[in-house]
Simulated scan of single mutants.
Amino acid sequence: MVEFKGLPSPDDLLILLTVARLGRFTAVAEALETTHTTVSRRIAALDRRLGGRTLARTPHGWELTELGRRAVAAAEGIESSLGDLSASMANKDESLTGHVRVGASDAFGALIVAPALARLQEEHRLLRLELVTATRRLSQNRSGFDLEIVPGTAEAPRVQAVVVTDHVRRLYAGRGYVRRRGMPHSLEELTGHAFVGYAESALQVAELAYGRQSITDEPAAFQATSIFPQAEAVRANAGIGLLPEYVVRGHSDFVPVLHHEFERHVRFWAAARSESMRSPAVRAVVSYLLEEAQRRRHQLLPPPRIWDEEEA
């Protein structure tokens, strides 16, 4: 039987809530600008006050116990009340507060997620937003982020995921490359061409590969960990690359290659722990991101282009 030893500290409850959302003491320490030791000490103090363990360590990070879930429900009420108080002090009727840490891939994060976050913060000045970009699959331990925007699939234990958008990737080359090597007119004619793609030693998302299984058995001649240097390498005539339409659309120096023959559709997901998805700030991030993706749909999923030989 749990021995109740008095009311817990609201600060300790809010720290527990942050642990529930981020899953790691180190990530919580970064978010709250404190130390791992302090976070551990405050959780221990909360456990003593409540008379039981609020967290259990699992392969997927820290998870709430039954007592922890009840404590987090109280913490969410405190967070909501503090948000209302901050909003009233700022003379705003509905102002979100807190700190939301978002992880996203490089290009999608920079070109789609960042504008959505900027619009959100413009309307909610008390909200602190952090965007960390890296191209990777969903963290299996769902640790370190309030929300992850990931390509491919969003399968992990105890994760809630929302489809953000599909986007299309097609083959492109630089003008100089086409003049030097010629324009392939079939998938078979791609054999022997140079390709630009992700660094295979670092690529975690199979859906982003440039399609060697469909095109050639040869590895990409130019490899990079981010889509931005890949696009610049294609622009500089290093080879043919499988590039997102939202990155290259509107730039005349990218030449479409076999757009009616080969393309790849990749889905982006917004994924988080259930505790994070209940946060009004996180839900707002998802909402603004969905709006931004819908607004940019013409860039994410445009029709294929046809290369006019005379343009060369």
Rank of each mutant, 00 (worst) to 15 (best):
F108T: 01
A74Q: 08
R119I: 00
D93S: 09
G83I: 04
A118F: 12
V100C: 03
L111Y: 14
E94R: 13
L55S: 05
D84W: 15
W62E: 04
G68M: 02
A116T: 00
Q121H: 11
S105E: 14
A44S: 13
A73H: 13
T58Y: 03
V100L: 02
R49V: 09
T65H: 08
A71N: 01
S95A: 12
S81E: 14
S88V: 08
E66Y: 11
G51Y: 14
K92L: 08
R49I: 06
A114Y: 15
V72H: 03
R70I: 07
A87G: 14
E123D: 07
A45D: 15
L85Q: 14
R101C: 04
A44I: 07
Q121T: 05
V113Y: 08
A74H: 14
G68Y: 02
I43G: 00
R48E: 15
A45Y: 05
L85G: 09
S88D: 13
D47S: 12
R42N: 03
A73Q: 10
D93R: 06
L96T: 01
L50H: 10
G51Q: 13
A87P: 05
P115E: 05
E66W: 12
A90H: 13
R125M: 09
A71V: 01
D106A: 10
A104N: 09
G51L: 06
S40V: 02
E94S: 11
M89D: 14
D106I: 08
S40L: 09
P59H: 06
A114V: 05
L96I: 01
D47W: 08
V113I: 03
R70S: 13
L117Q: 02
D47P: 09
E94F: 11
T54L: 07
E76S: 10
